[in-house]
């Protein structure tokens, strides 16, 4: 464990918590893409499938973190699609999730390190996570704005994988550890946030709201 991965995981936890708080406090999921949250839930379940296969006692924080990620993302989907369904902006959350899931699944079968079920599920989860934020960014471009709290969520969510890139550089240098698939997908994932990061740093930090040129 290194400082970059630690802060990456903390940033990821913060993002999940910020989104849950936003939906719970405002009792509304306006401006939140339900599809992105569904894709994240799929990512966690396919990536941590080992938790369900051979359930080992929660002896370390990693297992607890995995369970937190899975339960929090499923609970977030429950809030969006059931509890606060009336506030779900289905019209603007219109990016076809199939266009992300099918290519990720296909690519996972073509480019992986081992052709076995668990490895392919893990690879699918890595590829899907790289593009899972697209419906959320698409929704913001359609509505032309993002609530400040949603911007903070996106900033934390984008920072998590950016910090993981630093973690991979660190591990390459000190542990000669290389996970090409995760690195390439992580770089793509972080690049997708670039224009948002620019807007966040130039606007939200100064207290302004993000309004995209309609």
């Amino acid at each position: 464990m290194n400082i970059f991965r630690l802060f990456g995981d903390l940033s990821h936890l913060a993002a999940i918590a910020i989104l849950l708080l936003k939906i719970w406090k405002t009792r509304s999921c306006a401006g939140v893409s339900g599809k992105t949250q569904l894709l994240f839930a799929v990512c966690f379940i396919t990536r941590y499938i080992d938790l369900f296969l051979h359930f080992v006692s929660l002896y370390n924080t990693e297992k607890v973190m995995k369970l937190i990620y899975i339960s929090a993302s499923v609970f977030t989907c429950y809030l969006i699609f059931f509890k606060f369904k009336a506030t779900y902006d289905g019209n603007h959350d219109s990016m076809r999730a199939e266009f992300l899931i099918v290519p990720a699944a296909g690519l996972a079968c073509l480019i992986n390190t081992k052709f076995d079920a668990i490895e392919i599920l893990w690879t699918f989860s890595i590829y899907l996570e790289a593009v899972a934020i697209l419906p959320q960014l698409f929704l913001i471009s359609k509505t032309g704005e993002a609530e400040t709290i949603t911007s903070h969520y996106l900033f934390a969510q984008g920072s998590y994988r950016a910090l993981y890139i630093l973690n991979w550089i660190y591990r390459y240098h000190y542990e000669s550890h290389v996970d090409t698939i995760a690195i390439v997908a992580g770089v793509v994932q972080t690049i997708l946030y670039c224009d948002f990061f620019y807007l966040y740093i130039t606007k939200v930090v100064k207290g302004q709201k993000i309004v995209l040129p309609a």
Binding site: H12, K66, K114, D179
Partner: peptide, 10 residues
């Protein structure tokens, strides 16, 4: 060295 086998990251 590819060390994918040990999935030690979240």
């Amino acid at each position: 060295k590819e060390t994918n086998a040990a999935k030690d990251e979240l």
